[in-house]
């Protein structure tokens, strides 16, 4: 399961998430979604620290964030 998942079809390409990621792993995809926007996406999942900054700032509730359960 991915740490951070983008529902790319909902993304309007505002790029706010890319500006708040402390690991700089959120980027804009080259492809267009059905609404005609370049959706935000995460390239290096393993670097995600599940801080949720991207999700918290996303106006379109595109992002789901998970993390490993602490034992």
């Amino acid at each position: 399961m991915l740490n951070v998942e983008f529902d790319e079809e909902r993304c309007k390409g505002c790029e706010i998430c890319t500006s708040v990621c402390p690991k700089n792993i959120v980027v804009m995809a080259d492809r267009l979604n059905a609404m005609g926007y370049h959706p935000a996406t995460v390239i290096e999942q393993e670097k995600c620290i599940s801080c949720s900054f991207c999700a918290r700032m996303c106006p379109d509730v595109v992002i789901t964030v998970r993390k490993e359960e602490r034992k």
């Binding site: 740490n3 609404m35 949720s52 509730v61 998970r66 359960e69």
Partner: peptide
């Protein structure tokens, strides 16, 4: 894995 951030139930699934 636990979900730490997801769409709240009090929002519909409509795109704004």
């Amino acid at each position: 894995m636990i979900t730490v951030f997801e769409r709240p139930a009090a929002l519909t699934s409509a795109k704004t």
